[in-house]
Every structure is written in C-alpha cells, then in structure tokens.
Design a protein around this nucleic acid. Structure first.
Lengths: 127, 127
DNA sequence: CTTGCCTCTGACGTCAACGTCAGGTTTTAG
DNA sequence: CTAAAACCTGACGTTGACGTCAGAGGCAAG
C-alpha cells in the first residue's frame, strides 16, 4: 500500500473506444475534442490515449453544449467556470450571453411548433 | 377598368431587393430559396425577378423553419400543406416527425439552460 | 449622357463538427 | 503465434445555407 498515493483506489484508466461508447459518440469526435482543447489525455508508453472515467460525463456535457449551439471555442473558454467554479467578469458575461441566446432559440422553436401545430390542426379537419 | 382582371387593385410587384429588406435577409438568400424550389418569381422583360408582396411573409416563414432545423428540401416538401391545406399520409407523417424533432430539441435546450443556470448560480455565490 | 444603384448569371469560398480513408503500430482473444 | 480488433497520425471529404467576387447589363435622376 503506497504511502505517496491517495487513498482513492487507483482509478482505472480507460482508452478512447470506451470513452466513445460510454458517451455515445465516435472515436473521431473524442480526438477532435482533444484537438479543440476540451479534453486532455495521458498517454500510454506506446502512445495510446488514456482517460479517467469522468471523461465520459464530460463528453456528454460537451454534446449537450454543442446541441445548445455553443462552439468548441466557447466551451473551451467556459470550461474553467465549470471545473473550478471561478469566473471573471468576461466569463460571466459570456455565460449570460449564451443563456440569453439559448432562451431566444427556445422561443423561436416554440413559435415554429405553434406554426406546425396550426397546419396539423387544419390537416386534421381537412382529411 | 378591364373586365378580364380581378377586382383586386392590380397588386404592385416588387423586386428582389425589396423582398430581402422586407424579410430581413440577403438578396442572395432570396435567390437561393428560388433555386431550392421554395419561391417562384415572374420575370420582367429584362429578366429581373418580380415578386408579389406576400413573398415577404413567406420568406419570413422560411427563416422560421430554417431556424427550427428544417432543410430546404423538407420545407419544399411541406409547402403544399401550407398553401393548399391538403396533405397525404406521407406529408402528415413528416409534419409529426418534424414536430417531434423540434420538441425534443426544445427539451435539450431546456436541459442545457438548466446546466448553465447551475453554473451561473454557483458563480454568484463564489464571486 | 453619365453617375450611381440595383439586378443578373455563374462559380468558388466559408464554417463547424466531424466522416472517412490510407497506411502503419498495438493490444487482445484464442 | 496469429488473427482480429483497437489504436495511432495525417489529411482530405461532407453538408447546408448562404457569402463573395467577377463581369455584364438595367434604370431613374440630374
């Protein structure tokens, strides 16, 4: 039992395929996230990427932000807020701006839904 | 007072620039919509496009559908439902599919909003 | 008439998040 | 040991809705 190690049970590192399957994305996507500065990986002696298991929820989080319309750059800029909780004024501004943008998008989508429902209703009465 | 004309006061046709300005898009975009089969235009003797004034709300509608994630092809396929109210089974299926897709997207965005609000809250307590 | 703005066609450029292929090394299963 | 599966780098391809540029007319005002 090594004294220089933490009490945590020496987390098992996983390879890129397991991350991809776990998060439901392609291996290519995971490499892309690393290239964009979103994800870091240790390397095995032979050069293979090794991830901690929390890489999987992290990648899921990336997907969620992508789906919300954030770019890789923006996600990278906001990552510090995420894992350290610390923010400067600029980051707080970005957070609020993105929030507003997403909210506006929700409103747009809701309006589009209403338009579609309109048509669906008329097509039901006009079979 | 021509007898062969309808009683409507001979609607003034407008050129592409007026359509674009009126709908808040670029001239290029309007030409693109025509190329995609979404919009038709008469031509002046010299070849300039001439539109009826209802082209403006129509273009706004296209923008709304684009914002909702529909492709040009899909909008074109659903256009008949829109201006004639008639639909076949396939079109009704597409309408419902798009509706479901958009609704799912709204839910995703709402979840993303919640994540962002989480961070915003913690950054407010951690100034 | 000419100045300035609008329009035309045609074609290449853009951007983002990957997909896909080539050609090679590594790990794993039997 | 061997074959399959997984991984590597590097680089080009994809998609959709336009942007942008080139070169050539068209149209009202002064």
């Amino acid at each position: 039992m090594p004294v220089t190690e933490a009490a945590t049970p020496a987390e098992r590192l996983i390879r890129i395929g397991e991350v991809a399957r776990g998060a439901g994305v392609s291996v290519r996507a995971v490499r892309y996230y690393e290239q964009q500065g979103l994800l870091r990986a240790e390397r095995s002696p032979s050069g293979q990427r090794l991830y901690r298991q929390d890489a999987i929820p992290l990648v899921r989080f990336f997907q969620q932000m992508y789906a919300a319309g954030l770019t890789s750059r923006r996600i990278a800029e906001l990552l510090p807020c995420w894992d350290s909780g610390h923010t400067d004024a600029e980051q707080r501004a970005m957070l609020h701006a993105e929030r507003a943008r997403i909210q506006a998008k929700v409103d747009d989508l809701q309006a589009a839904l209403d338009r579609l429902d309109e048509v669906i209703a008329t097509t039901n009465t006009h079979p």
